[in-house]
Design a protein around this nucleic acid. Sequence first.
DNA 1: CCTATTCCGTCGCAATTGCAACAGAAATTA
DNA 2: TAATTTCTGTTGCAATTGCGACGGAATAGG
Lengths: 216, 216
Amino acid sequence: MMKGAIEKNPLFSGLDDNECEDALAALSAIKQEYAKGAVIFHAGERMYRFGLVLCGTVQVSFTDIDGNEILMASADAGDTFGESLCWLKVAEAPVTVTASTDVTLLWLTPELLMSGDTRKIVQELRNRFLSMLAAKTLSMNERVQILSKPTIRLKLITFLSQYANRYGSKTFSVPYDRETLARYLGVNRTALSRELSAMQADGIIEFYKNSFKILK
Amino acid sequence: MMKGAIEKNPLFSGLDDNECEDALAALSAIKQEYAKGAVIFHAGERMYRFGLVLCGTVQVSFTDIDGNEILMASADAGDTFGESLCWLKVAEAPVTVTASTDVTLLWLTPELLMSGDTRKIVQELRNRFLSMLAAKTLSMNERVQILSKPTIRLKLITFLSQYANRYGSKTFSVPYDRETLARYLGVNRTALSRELSAMQADGIIEFYKNSFKILK
DNA sequence: CCTATTCCGTCGCAATTGCAACAGAAATTA
DNA sequence: TAATTTCTGTTGCAATTGCGACGGAATAGG
């Protein structure tokens, strides 16, 4: 049913049905559903489990020192959130997770991965969990790369190039509305619209809603 | 000798001498020295080992699509670099590592951590390696938090607050010169100097070279 | 089909920033 | 010590961006 989303996740991809069941059991998987807008996790609590999104989209925002909310990531089907805070047993997690749409997700507990359990599936999961974290680090590098660019245009070009690379095509759509994209890029929404229009006028890109085409 | 730097690193902290030796052996540690300015790792190669800085400072810069160099991190004694790229066996690592000062470092190979080796020390290292990656993710969150701020002043306040938190004091010094700090914050150097002066005039901070004091 | 709501682009203006040129301080080297 | 190089702060100006207000398009709900 939700098999698709699970398979997309590097923790489970390529496992056969039995292995998958064992893996879910080893992680004490619990399914839960949230309505659009619901708060999935409150900042300030400890994150005992991390989340794997089965369907829908969640937003992870960081509550900073002044109480402002900064969009850290949005997780779609197959994506996870909260692994680091969970693994490190951070007492007061500084992130809030909310449902952008109706959401179904699995809560997973990495407790067994920390133990000396030598079952094959547990060892495999340990390795995969590690790979997942490593991949997350690299994807955050990409975010930093974008945010470091001096102008909105360069941020957009970098962002769009990254997407084009990931999709292997110069035509693609992104899972953000303008407001969310602006926050992801760290810029003002209307300034973003202005720049998108300018880039289209300059013949650099074409776009319709969330679909983009890089002309270059 | 360099024991201090090693102990600062979460992979080795708290291990006794024997364990430490075993750990270094398990990671096939090799010591190497570089002169100031030397290139420690070239972008485009595969990173078979990750680095642990024993003394000195290295800079990790990201080479983006246009060939620009973006400062991703600077690693001091006890810090590591390249774990993610190494673990994921990325064929063409997109980072360049250079020596900001004369540098001594250990090259470490995580190969054994990927195996089914069940020796206690290896299991321990696996867990610690994981924690290290998780911690890196969180510290990158802090960087993103800074870069997401709309103005130089807010970036600085966020950056300085993070440092004050880490040191547990409102007086501290940072390991960056102005040029490097500007690149870390993603802003223009002279604009940074201008804003620092303005903040001092406004009674928010005091600073002398790389020493800062938050007055608030 | 109509209405309310959300989403998106445009515009003018003020504020912030990048940039280039420059000068003095500090550190390094001869 | 003198000379050279590096680092840092200042300033004027142009370019970019943030912000608020607005209107039209798209969407959702009845």
